[in-house]
Design a protein around this nucleic acid. Sequence first.
DNA 1: GTACTAACTGATCGATCAGTCAGTATTACG
DNA 2: CGTAATACTGACTGATCGATCAGTTAGTAC
Lengths: 197, 197
Amino acid sequence: MPKKSKKADIIDTATVLFAGKGFANTSMAEVASLTGIAGATIFYHFKTKEELFVSVLENVKTGLVQAFSLYFQEEHFPTGLERLLGAVAYHLHLSETKKEWFLLLRRHYTHELAAVHPACRRHLEVVYTCLVEIFEKALTIGQEDGSIGPLSAKKTALIILAMVDGILQLESNNLYNAGTLYSELLASCRRMVENKQ
Amino acid sequence: MPKKSKKADIIDTATVLFAGKGFANTSMAEVASLTGIAGATIFYHFKTKEELFVSVLENVKTGLVQAFSLYFQEEHFPTGLERLLGAVAYHLHLSETKKEWFLLLRRHYTHELAAVHPACRRHLEVVYTCLVEIFEKALTIGQEDGSIGPLSAKKTALIILAMVDGILQLESNNLYNAGTLYSELLASCRRMVENKQ
DNA sequence: GTACTAACTGATCGATCAGTCAGTATTACG
DNA sequence: CGTAATACTGACTGATCGATCAGTTAGTAC
């Protein structure tokens, strides 16, 4: 196994903790102990707790953008509609294999900090722009090939993102076994955007 | 103006603070000072911070259930489809006039506590059951009168709830001016559930 | 080896905060 | 009025946590 730098180890540990327990409830001491280093070491690599958080978010951003770009490099779709449904399905899939990423993005602190911290805001914007544009592009393609009806691609992309995110939220809050809803979600998306023959 | 009890004052102040800054970032001292009472007074009415939070949540539950019940007492709809869209619109409307309620329900701490604290969990369940059943009932009525197509009422109700909640989330995170999306959201709901003629 | 730098650490500090307690004010009632 | 309960308060405590700092170790260059 490749020996990772301690700095990267800290970021990995912090990602899980920030995502799982939130910023305020995660202590630097806990990050240090789970990483297997002394408490003061974190402050050598990151000046403040906030700076650590931003590094974590940047790391998530990079990973997420890369994952989607890779997916569309390998997959190809006959119609825009199928491309859209593929994107939704991959979004759902990623949120299972990389739960921490999406938990972190859904944490309130992430958005509170973004309102105040320019670098943090930029990372968040990149993530959301990436997600929205994926849907938007699929919708535009679908309108050209006739698989998708006439609607505002931009606004519909936002609504689909909200819908997917809302389902993931329900699931992560253990309110309903949302896994059961995945196929129903895809069907609902299809009904929502497909061209009435 | 009716003189309110200090206990009710504390709950009102705490609702705004817990909703706006979260549980961990709200100090009992702040709640006390904004309510205009001494710090120790809160602990006379509520044994712990957690108990205060549960009282706040209970209060939100009561208000929310009442608001929806009142709405459907006064409004009547010609079709199930219109009833559904009315419910969605009222949900969006309430989330503006009673922002704190929905912010509180979306806070992670609310769900983390619910996983451990039975009374808290019960309050949350009442709220979500109320919201889901409103959509579910409208869908069922619509299927009977032919305005809504054949689909699982329960699952579709969950998806619509997730969609509305997702839009509100986008808005409260200042990511997009989601207000612009309200009419598009209603149109999308309609396309999703209406009976193909 | 020596010299220099980067990585890392243990001990500690100051601030914050939930919760306690012993006591004071306020109300209700005979 | 008296007295008893309820409502409220100021001063304090113990624990937690972010951050600092003086110092040690590991790595690299010569």
